[in-house]
Lab assay of single mutants.
Amino acid sequence: MPEGSASLQLAVGDRVVYPNQGVCRVSAIDVKEVAGQKLTFVTMRREEDGAVVMVPEGKVLAIGVRKVASAE
């Protein structure tokens, strides 16, 4: 991610809310080559049905992904 860009610090195992998809758990953060460029992807699995969603790390905030609020 370019320096100075806002990002959401995620780790494998974090629970997040993905708008219009529901609650997901981060299952992987991997670098993949797409069209000759190396990009970091956040892979999330929906808790409702296990569907897998992959989002480029740089788009996580723009999409509206946020961490699940704690009970505290």
Rank of each mutant, 00 (worst) to 15 (best):
L39T: 12
A11P: 01
K38S: 09
V16P: 00
Q37W: 06
G50T: 02
V60I: 15
V26W: 01
D14N: 02
G50F: 04
G22W: 04
A71D: 13
D30H: 15
G50S: 04
V55D: 03
I63V: 11
V23Y: 14
E3I: 11
C24F: 15
M44V: 03
E3P: 10
S5L: 10
A28Y: 06
V16D: 01
Y18W: 11
R45D: 03
A62G: 07
V31D: 05
E57L: 15
M54K: 07
P2I: 11
V60W: 11
R15I: 13
A11S: 11
T40K: 11
L39V: 15
D49V: 03
A35N: 14
Q21Y: 15
A51E: 09
E72I: 15
G36H: 04
I63D: 15
L10I: 08
K59Y: 13
S70E: 14
V12H: 01
E72G: 11
Q37S: 08
L61F: 08
A11Y: 09
G22T: 05
S70K: 11
K38N: 08
V60N: 02
M1K: 13
A51P: 02
V26S: 00
M54N: 05
G22S: 05
E57I: 14
E48C: 06
S7P: 12
Q37V: 12
G36D: 04
V34F: 09
G50D: 08
V52T: 09
G13E: 01
V42F: 10
S7G: 12
V17P: 01
K59C: 15
A62R: 06
A6L: 10
V17T: 07
A71C: 15
L10C: 00
M1A: 13
A69H: 11
A28H: 08
L10Q: 01
E72W: 08
G50L: 03
T40P: 02
F41L: 09
V26M: 00
E47V: 06
R15A: 05
V53N: 02
P56C: 05
L10E: 01
I63H: 12
V17S: 07
L10M: 04
Y18N: 02
C24I: 01
P56M: 05
E3Q: 11
N20D: 10
I29L: 06
D30T: 14
E47T: 02
Q21A: 08
V60P: 02
C24K: 00
E48F: 13
S7R: 07
A28D: 06
N20K: 08
V65H: 04
G64P: 05
K59N: 10
G13T: 01
R46N: 06
Q21N: 12
T43P: 00
S5K: 08
P2H: 12
Q9Y: 11
T43N: 02
G36E: 03
D49L: 03
A11R: 12
V31K: 06
Q37A: 09
A35W: 08
A28I: 04
S70Y: 09
R45K: 13
V55Y: 06
V68N: 04
A11E: 12
L39Y: 09
E3A: 13
A35Y: 09
F41S: 01
I63E: 15
A11V: 13
E57K: 07
L39Q: 10
S70G: 10
K67L: 15
P19S: 07
V55F: 07
A71H: 14
E33N: 08
E3G: 11
D30S: 13
R66F: 15
A6F: 10
G22R: 03
E33I: 13
V34I: 11
L10F: 08
A11Q: 13
G36M: 02
P56N: 06
R45Q: 13
M54C: 03
G64R: 03
S70D: 14
E47Y: 04
V34K: 05
C24A: 02
V23N: 05
Q37H: 09
V42L: 08
A35C: 05
M1P: 10
C24D: 00
K67Q: 08
A28V: 05
T40Q: 05
K32M: 14
E3L: 09
A71N: 12
A51W: 15
A28N: 08
P19E: 07
M1H: 14
V34G: 02
V53L: 15
V55T: 03
L61D: 08
S7Q: 11
K67E: 09
E57P: 05
P2K: 10
R45E: 13
M44L: 12
D30W: 15
G4W: 05
P56D: 13
G58L: 11
R46T: 02
D49I: 03
A35K: 12
A69M: 10
V31R: 06
E3Y: 06
K59T: 14
A35V: 04
R25Y: 10
R15S: 05
V65T: 05
T43D: 00
E72R: 06
K32H: 13
K32V: 13
V31C: 01
V65A: 05
V23H: 06
M44E: 00
K67R: 07
A71Q: 10
V34S: 06
L39S: 06
R15H: 06
V55N: 02
P2F: 09
E57C: 05
K59P: 04
Q9K: 14
A71W: 09
E72L: 10
P2T: 12
R66H: 15
K38R: 12
V68Y: 09
C24G: 01
D49Q: 01
S27A: 11
A69T: 14
R15V: 10
S27V: 14
L10N: 01
G4M: 10
E33L: 12
V52R: 05
A71F: 10
D49M: 03
V53K: 03
E33Q: 09
G4I: 11
G58V: 08
S5Q: 13
V12L: 06
D30Y: 13
V60L: 15
G22F: 03
A69G: 13
P19L: 07
G4Q: 13
C24T: 00
T43W: 11
D49S: 04
G13M: 01
E33T: 10
G58K: 13
V23E: 05
V12R: 02
V23A: 04
G22K: 05
D49C: 01
N20W: 05
R15Y: 14
T40N: 06
V16N: 00
A71P: 11
P56K: 04
M54F: 08
L61E: 09
A28R: 09
